[in-house]
Amino acid sequence: MQRVCFLLRVRRDRLDEYRERHTAVWPDMLAALSGAGWRNYSLFLREDGLLVGYLETEDFDRARAAMAETEVNARWQAEMSGFFEELDGAGPDEAMRPLTEVFHLA
């Protein structure tokens, strides 16, 4: 199982709305994530907008590619892209750059 952690930055003026959107993630989006192999997926948001994401999957590149093929992900990414800083023209999923794991206590 591959453990993946990534960072993004949410715009400070949209923190409350970002939190609200994640209290009711679309059921078809949740099903797509599960179907693509995303497990134990969590998002943590700091008050300054730092977003830390964590997930487990067999193959992150394959799981991300599977999501990219879904219609619901295209809709979700289009709606969510305005919440983030520093995407440099990429969608939020494309801007995810996994951090290198340097320690894990099993």
Rank of each mutant, 00 (worst) to 15 (best):
L50G: 03
D61G: 09
A65S: 09
F60R: 01
F60G: 03
A74W: 10
M80H: 10
E71K: 05
G82W: 12
A68R: 02
L55F: 05
F83D: 08
G49A: 03
R46D: 10
V52K: 01
T70R: 13
L45E: 00
G82I: 03
E69W: 06
A65T: 02
L51D: 09
G82M: 11
R62F: 00
D48M: 06
T57V: 03
Q77M: 13
S81N: 11
A68Y: 05
G82E: 13
E79S: 12
Q77N: 10
E69D: 15
L51F: 05
D61E: 14
E56I: 00
L50W: 07
E79Q: 13
Y54S: 11
F44R: 07
E56Q: 09
S81A: 15
E69Y: 02
M67A: 07
S42V: 11
N40W: 10
R62G: 01
L43H: 08
E69T: 12
W76P: 05
E69A: 14
Q77G: 07
A66V: 00
F83W: 11
F60L: 04
A74C: 09
Y54A: 07
F83Y: 15
A78L: 09
T57I: 01
V52W: 11
G53H: 04
L50K: 08
Y41D: 01
M67T: 00
M80W: 13
R75F: 12
E71T: 10
A74T: 14
D48Y: 07
D59R: 00
A68W: 05
E71W: 10
A68V: 04
E71P: 08
E69G: 04
E58G: 15
T57S: 11
G49M: 02
F60W: 15
G53V: 01
N73C: 13
E56S: 04
F44K: 02
D61N: 10
R75H: 14
E56K: 00
S42N: 11
A65I: 01
M67W: 09
R64C: 05
M80D: 13
Q77S: 14
S42Y: 14
L51H: 08
R46E: 12
L55W: 03
N40G: 13
A66I: 01
L55E: 08
E56C: 02
G82Y: 11
T57G: 06
L51S: 08
D48R: 08
L55V: 04
E47W: 11
S42A: 10
D48K: 03
Y41V: 05
A65V: 04
R75M: 10
T70L: 02
L43T: 15
A66N: 12
G53T: 00
L50V: 14
F44Y: 15
R64I: 13
R64S: 13
E56A: 03
R75K: 12
L50D: 06
D59I: 00
L55H: 01
N73D: 14
W76L: 01
F83K: 04
L50R: 12
N73R: 11
E69V: 03
V72T: 12
Q77L: 11
